[in-house]
Design a binder for these strands. Structure first.
Length: 511
RNA sequence: GCGGACGUAGCUCAGUUGGUUAGAGCGCUGGAUUGUGGCUUCAGAGGUCGGUGGUUCAAAUCCACCCGUUCGUACCA
């Protein structure tokens, strides 16, 4: 190894933490555009914004009390001066419950509210999955009836369409935790194992979309399922009779039944009701779903938009009633052109116990969350975003560097800005003029303004149409000729600058 | 977490059975061009070969572990 290399000072490596990403101008504009459209829908439904901070005391967030061994499992946690544990929020629902409980005396129920913000999860990131991402939530707090859940489903559907996702390209799938509980009661899932079998069954049912009936049956049974890398997932340990009953209740034994099939979801519900009645299980959950179905159908939302599907599970933690999720039905491809299984881009449900933890009194609530970052990835690949790209500014170049000239350039820029035109003066080292042109080219500036002393003496400026210039330049071969030709450039009276720029921008826009 | 693949310049990649000073294209900087993007041409900068340890006379190349990326799976409030 050469001495030269050894002596070289070690440079600090610039890197961002795993799962955290910088956002480009295009991403920020696309996100803003989406947020605006979502907000419009929520406002129209009569929801008001509220904001809570990124940090909460850990015990207020729920189950993730950091134990001393792994204080950061799942959530990012830090200890405050007074040794209290604080965590970055991992969703917007738990903080809302805290906000409502803390202000329960001032808040008029039912409280209809929305908010968007960054949430954080300390887990393995993947493509389209980050450790910091944005959610946009809407909730109705203090609403016990299923009509509130029905409204949430309709609002989700409206939001999808407001974002430019066509009817038929998405579906809101609806289920009820009470239905799942009844199914499990009817097959007598073990209750003395700390809920382990119950959770395993729920997880298995949730996989219907991914692995189909065969995979779910494997996961419900004792053998479990082997994936293509040879990894084995333990089964829930149900016997064949139990599995048969579940399959009967969900209707999955019928050909082309279940999610995304052509069968009527009304039949799915009727089948569920019949099967659960026969087994002597509660049909309260099915009745609720039937009520929701009646409401949304009456409001004109058919099953191409809102669909009842017993394989929807959602979170295992706090949902108590109806649950729903928004799913994209079209193929999404990534940058490499590969198909990506996109699945759910948002979801929610009824959480009647979340506020009660603080207040002791029943405060039933329902709400949903849209994964903005995730949905944006899909929309971007679909070409539904960033189509009206922001036009780069008009560039006023710097020929002369004396204060008087600089003032004159700045005046031009301000005149353009005053007329609502994006404009800037070249702020790099103005020594090399061709560098200014290269800058304008790379930025995509539509027009360049040039005024040297020749023009100034005659109260003129040069206007250069960068788009037309590029077109004309293609025919020129020698550099001398190219420079002499000054393609796309013409002289105007300095007094007409704003009008001429406006005129040229209009011409470019219509081309 | 488990299993597989991958990691060489800013980017895309080449680098033979282990063998001298690790290369190309694009991009970047500067010149040809003291008032014009593109083309052309000349020159230049840029590398802990992901990291650490090992085998060897010799490692980008072989081995082990770690880190990162990625695919599947698990978990997902």
């Amino acid at each position: 190894m050469a001495d030269k290399k050894k002596k070289k000072p070690q440079k600090l490596k610039a890197r961002s933490p795993r799962g955290f990403v910088d956002r480009s101008a295009a991403d920020i504009r696309a996100t803003d555009e989406m947020i605006g459209k979502i907000r419009e829908v929520y406002e129209r439904y009569g929801f008001d914004p509220v904001e809570t901070p990124a940090f909460e005391y850990t015990d207020c967030l729920g189950k993730f009390l950091p134990d001393t061994d792994r204080p950061n499992a799942g959530v990012f946690s830090v200890q405050d001066d007074d040794e209290q544990w604080m965590s970055l929020r991992y969703d917007l629902t738990a903080p809302l419950a805290r906000h409502v409980a803390e202000n329960i005396n001032e808040i008029t129920l039912p409280y209809r509210t929305y908010r968007n913000g960054w949430v954080f999860r300390n887990e393995k990131p993947g493509p389209g999955r980050f450790r910091q991402f944005m959610q946009f939530d809407a909730d109705t707090v203090g609403a016990p009836g299923v009509q509130a859940d029905a409204e949430m489903c309709m609002m989700m559907a409206d939001t999808m369409e407001a974002l430019g996702i066509k009817r038929g390209d998405y579906v809101i799938r609806v289920n009820n935790r009470k239905v799942l509980d009844a199914i499990m009661a009817s097959v007598q899932v073990a209750e003395d194992d700390g809920g382990e079998q119950r959770l395993a069954v729920l997880r298995a049912l949730d996989k219907f979309d991914k692995f189909g009936l065969e995979g779910v049956v494997q996961l419900l049974g004792t053998k479990g399922r082997m994936d293509e890398s040879g990894d084995h997932t333990k089964g829930a340990g149900l016997n064949d009779a139990q599995i048969m009953r579940i399959v009967n209740a969900t209707g999955w034994n019928e050909v082309s039944s279940g999610s995304n099939s052509g069968v009527s979801d009304g039949l799915t519900l009727a089948n569920l009701e019949k099967a659960l009645s026969l087994d002597g299980a509660s049909i309260e959950g099915v009745k609720e779903l039937e009520a929701i179905r009646g409401i949304v159908r009456a409001a004109g939302y058919e099953q191409d938009r809102i669909w009842f599907d017993p394989s929807v599970v959602r979170g295992l933690e706090y949902y108590t009633g109806p649950v729903y999720e928004a799913e994209l039905l079209f193929d999404v491809t990534n940058e490499k052109g590969e198909k990506v299984q996109f699945g759910s881009v948002g979801g929610g449900g009824r959480y009647d116990g979340l506020v009660k933890r603080f207040t002791g009194q029943d405060v039933p609530a329902t709400g949903f969350s849209i994964g903005v970052s995730r949905l944006m990835t899909a929309l971007k690949n679909l070409g539904k975003l960033g189509q009206d790209e922001v036009l780069a500014p008009v560039l006023v170049t710097v020929m002369d560097k004396d204060t008087e000239s600089l003032g004159a350039y700045q005046k031009m820029v301000q005149d353009l800005r005053g007329a609502g035109i994006r404009a800037e003066m070249y702020q790099g080292n103005p020594k090399d003029f061709s560098k200014q042109m290269r800058y304008a080219d790379k930025r995509g500036c539509p027009i360049v303004i040039i005024q040297g002393n020749e023009e100034r003496e005659n109260s003129k400026v040069q206007l250069k149409d960068m788009i037309e210039g590029k077109r004309q330049a293609a025919a020129i071969e020698s550099n001398e000729e190219y420079r002499a030709a000054r393609p796309g450039q013409f002289e105007i009276d300095a007094a007409d600058l704003v009008d001429e720029v406006k005129k040229l921008l209009a011409v470019q826009a219509s081309a």
